[in-house]
């Protein structure tokens, strides 16, 4: 690592071996090398953007927010799936960095995986609040009641970005195409554990089958790879418990939480102005 005079700015020459694949021309993916000086503070995604801007405009990759919140830029870097925007290049401690598209997903082009499988599996577990009081949902009177502790019971699973890293880390997904996968299991648990929801039975039906939750054997890879601390491995184990309890008719949760009661003995502060008139009806 050489230090430029007069600055506190480190650079290091790093070789990137980047997967290239054009489905119209190539029979199989190949690795193309790009070598350039990387400055301290550049994320792996910054380096890919550098390659696209300065070295090779034909490189395709997917990225959007650059701050670890959209889940577009998940890639397989030096044998481990990561969010590239979330990883400092120097943190990898390597002179050669190999970047491939996420394994277990079909390749569309270069570094772009086809995540359709992930979204189909996610949809199959009904990732939304299921309730029977249609009238209240269509024209709500008040919010549904939920305590802060009840929020914490599912909050960590709701941070899922749908980046697809867990499915490329999972050894079961690698061998069983139909396995529902850690992401969907995490979301199934997130909604099952939400006190406002009443769809536990439907969701357990969607995950309790030969390619469902029982295919998880706790390799822990999804939990270790998840960039947002969602911990799909924990969700899968707790879902197994729910599914087993349901067979014995136990562990049924209470009815979905109702609307919060109207507060009593409170009055509006006099200095708060009225809301502006509605612009849509």
């Amino acid at each position: 690592m050489d230090t430029k005079k007069g600055t506190n700015h480190h650079t290091k020459t790093i070789t990137f071996r980047v997967q290239r694949f054009d489905p119209n021309r190539d029979a199989e993916p190949r690795l193309q090398e790009y070598t350039f000086p990387v400055s301290q503070g550049m994320t792996v995604l910054d380096c890919l953007i550098y390659i696209k801007e300065k070295l090779d405009g034909s490189l395709s990759f997917r990225a959007s927010c650059r701050m670890g919140i959209c889940g577009s830029c998940a890639m397989f870097v030096n044998g481990f799936p990561i969010l590239t925007c979330h990883t400092q290049t120097f943190e990898l401690n390597a002179d050669v960095i190999e970047i491939r598209s996420l394994p277990n997903y079909p390749i569309i082009k270069d570094l772009i995986p086809d995540l359709t499988m992930l979204f189909e599996k996610h949809k199959s577990i009904k990732p939304y609040i299921i309730r029977t009081d249609i009238k209240e949902i269509e024209s709500p009177t008040r919010e549904y009641h939920q305590s802060p502790q009840e929020l914490e019971d599912y909050l960590q699973f709701s941070y899922c970005l749908k980046c697809g890293i867990c499915l490329s880390a999972c050894p079961t997904v690698a061998t069983d195409r139909a396995f529902i996968g850690p992401q969907a299991l995490g979301q199934a648990f997130r909604y099952n554990n939400d006190t406002r929801d009443g769809g536990t039975a439907e969701r357990l039906d969607a995950i309790d089958h030969p390619h469902g939750v029982w295919r998880c054997h706790m390799a822990g890879a999804c939990a270790d790879a998840c960039p947002k601390g969602v911990d799909p491995a924990m969700a899968a184990q707790l879902l197994k418990r729910q599914a087993a309890a349901a067979v014995f008719g136990r562990g049924k949760k209470a009815k979905p939480a109702g609307v919060a009661p109207e507060p009593k003995n409170v009055s509006r502060r006099p200095n708060i102005p009225d809301a502006p008139p509605r612009t849509v009806e």
Binding site: F21, A27, F80, P103, P106, A169, R177, M218, G220, D224
Partner: peptide
Amino acid sequence: HLDNRLGLRGWIRAGRYRFER
């Protein structure tokens, strides 16, 4: 190659994953 699924290789190679893997 377009498919890119790891298959048996995916469960036999633990690579940089942790000890439980």
